[in-house]
């Protein structure tokens, strides 16, 4: 069986001196929760943008579910960017309408349920919500889709521990064997135990792609500790 995501010789060069992603080849299977790890500026976000069609590769190819990045893959990839991408003067329920209209795999009941459990009013306007609440609304929208691939860019950066637990639980509750979750982060310790596999990136290169238990077994330390050792300057 083919992988869910097949990346071949992927390169993104902004100019001659600035190569953000350099010749990466990877195959991501279905049914896994995968950490995309690396220090700031290692090319994680560039890779993620290319997976979502927000950047065109300079060279190489990406196939998701066997198809090149485009309208069809966008219908099956649920993306949480590292910023607020919702218009401030919209109400939460208007954004639900928006998602329901464009994404066939969006479950409004699921989203409403999650909003309710967090006590977020569907009538609230986005710009009246706190930054943390806005992030939760986005996560709820993204996780309420029944996508093949979830791409979460730094979902736990700058959130309090309770919110982090909520995010991790939401990801785990949503787990299904046909879809995979790709989570980029530089805070590995916090999410290590929910990950199956980890991808290490540095200076745009793929350093390592292996399972969490593999690292622990082989190196006798947590992925977090191993990561610090590998990337120590």
């Amino acid at each position: 069986m083919n992988g869910l995501v097949e990346i071949l010789g992927l390169t993104k060069a902004y100019d001659e001196h600035h190569v953000a992603v350099s010749n990466i080849s990877l195959t991501l299977p279905r049914g896994k929760i995968i950490g995309l790890l690396g220090p700031n500026g290692s090319g994680k976000t560039t890779l993620i943008k290319m997976l979502n069609g927000l950047l065109m590769p300079t060279a190489g190819s990406i196939r998701i579910g066997g198809k090149p990045v485009g309208v069809e893959t966008k219908a099956h990839v649920s993306y949480l960017p590292d910023r607020t991408y919702l218009s401030g003067n919209k109400k939460v329920k208007q954004i639900l309408d928006y998602f329901a209209d464009f994404y066939k795999d969006f479950s409004r009941e699921r989203a409403v349920g999650m909003l309710q459990s967090l006590g977020i009013e569907p009538d609230a306007r986005m710009n009246t919500l706190s930054k943390g609440t806005k992030e939760k609304v986005q996560l709820i929208l993204v996780m309420s889709r029944q996508a093949d691939l979830y791409v979460l860019d730094e979902p736990i950066a700058g959130v309090d521990p309770a919110a982090r637990d909520y995010i991790l639980r939401t990801i785990l509750n949503n787990y299904n064997p046909n879809s995979s979750v790709l989570i980029s982060t530089h805070l590995i310790g916090d999410i290590e135990q929910v990950l199956d596999e980890v991808i290490f990136m540095r200076y745009g290169h793929l350093v390592l792609y292996t399972s969490v238990d593999n690292v622990r077994e082989k190196h006798g330390k947590s992925v977090d500790a191993y990561f610090r050792e590998v990337f120590a300057c």
Binding site: L54, K74, A75, P81, Y103
Partner: peptide, 9 residues
């Protein structure tokens, strides 16, 4: 907001 606009199918 472009992050949403350009990831719509």
């Amino acid at each position: 907001e472009g992050y949403l606009t350009h990831t719509l199918p």
